[in-house]
């Protein structure tokens, strides 16, 4: 197999791409390529990963212009005919160094969106009964497997245009809480996702749903939040 021609972003926001030759291997992932460069060619390369099996959400990068989880992205799926591979940090987040972005703005939006569960029961109460086939529980099932990788945030045009926008992942999280029969702060959640930075800022471009490695559709959740927010506003509850 011929070598891969890899270009990797080096430095901070003012940095640029550096070129590397990496041996092509079978079933090679993009994370394998980055790891090869760091261990064999340039030990100063900074990047982030942990589980390597698509669970932790820490290895997301921009691969040939598209945000992806690199541990589960096979090189064969993303290289062009010339075997070129361009790897950059995620969009819309401050670059710490090389391929490492500061994820704080991403997770700060989860807090700003009121993404915390608020229950009324204590450990002394009985379990809540939630029918598995109820519409609300099904809506939660479709949205709950988010691993917080930031791919949706990096792919969202609205985030690029409106830095205050809460983003697909945070809104998806709030959607699961609004659907949760045990959560007692529905109106607080809706209040937190209202306004110019909230769910109504979404233009339904569906980039988040297209790029989500877990096949979640934040767009569906955001549309649900818009409906819930509209009803609550028209009823004068907010």
């Amino acid at each position: 197999m011929s070598d891969l021609h890899v270009r990797i972003w080096r430095g901070d926001a003012e940095g640029g791409f550096s070129a590397y030759q990496v041996p092509r291997q079978e079933s090679q992932t993009v994370l394998d390529v980055v790891t090869y460069v760091q261990r064999q060619l340039d030990a100063t390369l900074a990047y982030r990963f942990a589980c390597r099996v698509g669970m932790c959400g820490s290895c997301a990068m921009t691969v040939n212009g598209v945000a992806r989880w690199t541990c589960r992205t096979h090189v064969s799926k993303v290289i062009d005919d010339q075997g070129a591979l361009e790897i950059a940090p995620l969009n819309h987040l401050p670059i710490v160094r090389d391929l490492v972005t500061d994820m704080a703005p991403f997770f700060d939006q989860w807090a700003a969106a009121s993404g915390q569960f608020s229950g009324a029961k204590t450990r002394h109460d009985d379990f809540a009964t939630v029918p598995p086939d109820s519409p609300a529980r099904r809506a939660i099932d479709a949205a709950i497997e988010c691993i917080g990788c930031g791919v949706c945030y990096a792919s969202c045009d609205t985030v690029a245009w409106n830095p205050a926008y809460l983003g697909p992942a945070a809104l998806n999280r709030v959607w699961t809480l609004v659907q949760d029969a045990r959560d007692t702060a529905t109106l607080d959640h809706l209040r937190a996702v209202s306004g110019d930075a909230g769910c109504q800022a979404c233009h339904t471009h569906v980039s988040c749903a297209e790029r989500c490695p877990k096949n979640i559709s934040p767009t569906v959740g955001i549309a649900g939040l818009k409906r819930a927010l509209t009803k609550a506003t028209l009823k004068g509850q907010l």
Partner: peptide
Amino acid sequence: MSARLQTWLWIAQRG
């Protein structure tokens, strides 16, 4: 402008 008013503007635009 409050988030509440921003929401009303959004509803007005949809309506």
